[in-house]
Amino acid sequence: MSATTEEPVAVILAGGQGSRLWPISRDRRPKQFQPVVGGRPLLTGTIERLSEIVDPARIHVSTRARFADAARETLGPVPPENLILEEDPAGPATAFALSIATLARRYGNAPALIAPSDHLITEDEAFNQASRDMLTQLDDSPESMVVLGAKPTGFDGSLGYIHTQGEGGPVEVITSFYEKPDPATIDELGDQGSLYWNTACYGVRVAKACDAYRAAMPLVFDTIEQFAADRPDVNGYRGAAIGGHELYPLLAAGMECLVVPRHLGWNDIGTWKRLQHVLVEQGLHSIGPAVQLECDDMLVASMDGRPIVTLGTSGLVVVTHDDAVYVLDKQGAMGAGPLEHLRALLASEREDLL
């Protein structure tokens, strides 16, 4: 372990499959490694943003071993040895635990920012200031977990929500978390306090977080800590998994959770619907070079730089990669059933196209 310092560290969680955005998000190169919006991979944008706050040498990226090559291509100033790998997808709580164990091993009880790799931030300075405020809060209350909450611009039942008593101020105490609640629950909670979208951007003292995980699930976390004592960038973790939300072990151990609520340009572009909303907000109708004439309700994505030309078409998703061109009915692409049926067909006949 290196000497404990007050300098911040960071870990970016980049192990998701992004299957709801297939075929933009591919099995070997999910959306976080793709230039979905803005002409640069989402992971690259996250690294550049965090580099304004944290020394890139102290930024780590958690991902699956099968994505290691794609991750290395997008690390920029982050050292390749700062990869934290898992062999099998074991869920966000396992990735979180593996990350904090690795950071604690290397940096002691340093303050850490933990962020998803695949979210779109359109107001970098507001986001960075909120991140700095989260680190400041960790100075004031080092025993706590701090969450960045985005003030909702509307109801979205596919997102996670944070509920507080609505005391106001720059920091509020979180009373509960709700994953994908229904509108009636949102209305009821809104009458009883304040609600924020959970951006899954966290601030925590890593040794304190390890203490909480160790108290909540000692046997599993012991296995994870043993792995972190070796070189996580060389071999992927293959061991006991932790189910559920990544913050539940912290809550079970009695750690206070705070929220820094902000108005900021934040989007979790995990679905076609949200991606289309983001593109429309930016006045765009395509990703990459495209020409559309007499077209309606089209979503076009050139992931390999080839121009896409559409004439007189409507209600389609068109995606190009180096190895294939995909044309999907938009309603089918946004519905889990038809999309999963197509993926199952390709898995049996052309797995290389997944």
Rank of each mutant, 00 (worst) to 15 (best):
A209T: 07
V204G: 02
A209S: 11
Y213V: 01
D233V: 04
C210R: 11
L195G: 00
D233E: 15
A200D: 05
G190H: 04
T223W: 06
F221D: 07
D233T: 14
A229W: 06
M217E: 12
F155S: 02
Y213H: 09
P218C: 06
F221P: 02
G149K: 01
H163T: 14
S158F: 10
Y202F: 15
A200C: 07
A207E: 10
V173T: 14
E225D: 12
R214I: 03
P183E: 15
C210N: 04
A150D: 11
R214D: 04
V204R: 01
G168D: 13
A229F: 06
C210V: 15
Y237C: 03
P183H: 03
V173L: 08
F155K: 01
G193S: 10
A150P: 00
T223N: 13
Y196N: 05
G203D: 06
E172D: 12
P181N: 13
R231M: 13
V173P: 02
V234P: 01
A229D: 15
F221T: 11
F155R: 02
E188F: 04
V173F: 06
G236P: 11
R231D: 15
K208G: 06
G203Q: 04
S194R: 11
F221I: 07
R205S: 05
F221E: 02
G149W: 04
S158M: 13
G154T: 08
N235K: 03
Y178R: 12
G236S: 09
L189R: 15
P181G: 08
I186A: 02
Q192I: 03
V171P: 03
A184G: 05
T164E: 11
F221L: 09
G203H: 03
V234N: 07
A150Q: 11
F155P: 00
Y237G: 03
G203F: 10
L189N: 10
T175I: 08
F155T: 09
D156F: 08
D230E: 15
P218K: 13
N198F: 10
G157M: 14
F221V: 03
P152Y: 07
V204P: 00
E179S: 13
P152G: 12
P218S: 09
I186R: 06
